[in-house]
């Protein structure tokens, strides 16, 4: 959920809205959001599934240290979504295992 009013940080400043897709579903994000934050704001918490047991993983450290939040972004796997900012039209996919590169990037 986005924090609209905050006792110390004040009212959220309105930034440019952009759209991204998460597993083909379009969601709206704010310029400057990290991918992980934009997803959490819309209630998406699963970033990937592990290769052997298929267990779900999501944001854990939030500062790029643990790699639990990696996803496929614009066809490139293993992108740490907690430190990568959204861009208009970004295509984000839940990653399975080590993920895969899509054709245009091979």
């Amino acid at each position: 959920m986005r924090i609209e009013a905050h006792p110390i940080l004040g009212t959220r400043s309105v930034k440019e809205t952009i759209s991204i897709t998460v597993d083909d579903r379009t969601i709206l994000a704010q310029q400057g959001d990290t991918i992980a934050a934009a997803m959490l704001a819309e209630g998406f918490r699963v970033c990937r599934h592990t290769s052997r047991t298929g267990e779900p993983r999501g944001v854990f450290c939030g500062i790029g240290q643990c790699t639990d939040c990696v996803m496929q972004v614009n066809g490139v796997p293993n992108i740490r979504t907690c430190i990568t900012e959204v861009e208009e039209g970004m295509e984000i996919r839940t990653q399975v295992g080590v993920g895969r590169w899509e054709a245009s990037h091979e």
Partner: peptide
């Protein structure tokens, strides 16, 4: 720390 980063920097 992840929660703190999300609420105070990302405001989510």
């Amino acid at each position: 720390g992840a929660a703190q980063t999300l609420i105070n920097l990302s405001r989510v």
